[in-house]
Design a binder for these strands. Structure first.
Ligand SMILES: [Zn+2]
Ligand SMILES: [Zn+2]
Ligand SMILES: [Zn+2]
Ligand SMILES: [Zn+2]
Lengths: 135, 135
DNA sequence: CACCATAATGGGAATCGTTCCCATAACGCA
DNA sequence: TGCGTTATGGGAACGATTCCCATTATGGTG
């Protein structure tokens, strides 16, 4: 969704950053910063909590990671594809699928223009209970 | 979005609750709990912060108020119509317009079903800069 | 109208996710 | 290998939200 950083100061490759990127790469659902911090510790690649937050923030700015705010306001992160998409998330196990809806993109632009809004962005998430979590 | 409370214990009408409902009724954009608390104080109808939070929570459950989480995780509240809708929000002045997109409703159900997800809900917000806030 | 059981209030403490600060360690390039 | 600069991390600081609980107000009832 967000993609800044044109040619800013070069970003250094540190053990911590590599560890976090590797972890995110093998996870396919949204996880909180605290979760990621704990997972890294368990795995042996301990990384300071502050660093986890900083790095996630950077990854989000680079457009490599998407953020999602839960009802409780806690942020969750997921390594996502770079093209615009939305999410279908299981409210029980957090399993996430990337989905796209071209018509929606056009609709958002149109409805915003009709109301005199410019520089339009949007955010859509679909929540449900996945097959594996059904009762 | 949320609508619980079938015939729970009767809810009492207090000065505080009335004041908050009245304030929300005349505001047309999303406001944080802290904002509302301050506005009530300025207006003379002081209400404890804890009560503001509790009451907003109740109003949300009753479906009279919608919540929106900002990028910083802070929640904002707005007195909304009871029918399902989405929001077109000015990222600068917070001005908000309720909008609807029937095709999206169908799409969400379909895409979720295709992936084996049930009990589907969704959430869409469109952000932009309104005419009055244009440069 | 007075009375009571019960729900609501509010001020301050307690949570908890996230950010700050800053001395120290690690990069990357020459 | 040496150096200027960026990244790290532990703990303090923050800020929104929730908890606790003694006190007050509400909505019937008689
Ligand atoms: Zn994504
Ligand atoms: Zn889209
Ligand atoms: Zn609304
Ligand atoms: Zn909808």
């Amino acid at each position: 969704m967000t993609q800044t950083r044109p040619e800013n100061p070069p970003r250094r490759i540190t053990r911590q950053r590599s560890a976090l990127e590797a972890l995110l790469a093998e996870l396919e659902d949204f996880r909180s910063a605290q979760d990621l911090h704990a997972l890294l510790r368990d795995r042996g690649d301990g990384v300071g909590l502050a660093t986890v937050y900083r790095t996630l923030q950077a990854l989000v700015e680079e457009g490599q990671v998407d953020v999602l705010r839960g009802d409780d306001g806690e942020a969750s992160y997921r390594s996502c594809s770079p093209v615009h998409h939305h999410h279908l998330v299981c409210r029980s196990c957090r399993r996430t699928v990337e989905v796209a809806d071209p018509p929606l993109e056009r609709w958002a632009q149109r409805i915003a223009a009709e109301h005199g809004f410019a520089d339009v962005h949007h955010q859509l998430e679909v929540y449900g209970t996945c097959g594996a979590c059904a009762p």
